[in-house]
Amino acid sequence: MYPVNPKLTRRRFIKGVIASGAAATSTSIWYAANGAERPPGSVERLIRINVNGQVRTVDVAPQETLASTLRYKLGLTGTKLGCNRGECGACTVLVDDIPSYACSILTHSVKAMRIETVEGLESANGDLHPVQQAFVEELSPQCGYCTPGQVMAAVGLLRANPNPTREEARQGMAGNICRCGSYDSYLNGVMRAAEIG
């Protein structure tokens, strides 16, 4: 199993949202996350975040989630929202190499960290990342909506454990739901990616 980033727990997220003035219900978090209102206060809104190796300057509301920033401010729509409440993993990105739910992270909390999304995986010449290549070869996706999250979870897993057993891969990927039930095909993809790594 891969490590959990102690700075990015769900508890810290909820506390952060409450501190920023939004009510702590999942529905409100979703919309508060896209807030355009500018509450008086000391939180600087124009911040710099490191996404896919590029430092981006972006206007971020205090209670805005990383998934919102990526999707709606930076146009990185590869990161999906399946539940927006930390249940499904569709929004998985890497924060300092660790797979993390972008719907449950405040953007302000990752200013000093490296964020990687599915858009950042291909090499400069357009070659797919080994995980992406393996997922194509194994036809891992079905509807594809969970796929970017599965890809990022697999990349994070293989960085921490380049040669997992199938059981380790199953445990490592367990934070990502696939309603199409393509788990077997994703595991085939992870094992193949480890081979071609």
Binding site: R71, L76, T77, G78, T79, K80, L81, T117, V118, E119, L121, E122, L128, V131, Q132, F135, V136, L139, S140, P141, G144, Y145, T147, P148, V151
Partner: peptide, 21 residues
């Protein structure tokens, strides 16, 4: 025979668009 359906690369790269994108 197996083949690569044309939308699969878009699914693994996140490029394919769903309505909300």
């Amino acid at each position: 025979k197996d083949f690569v359906p044309p939308d699969v690369p878009g699914k693994v790269t996140g490029r394919i668009k769903y309505a909300e994108d």
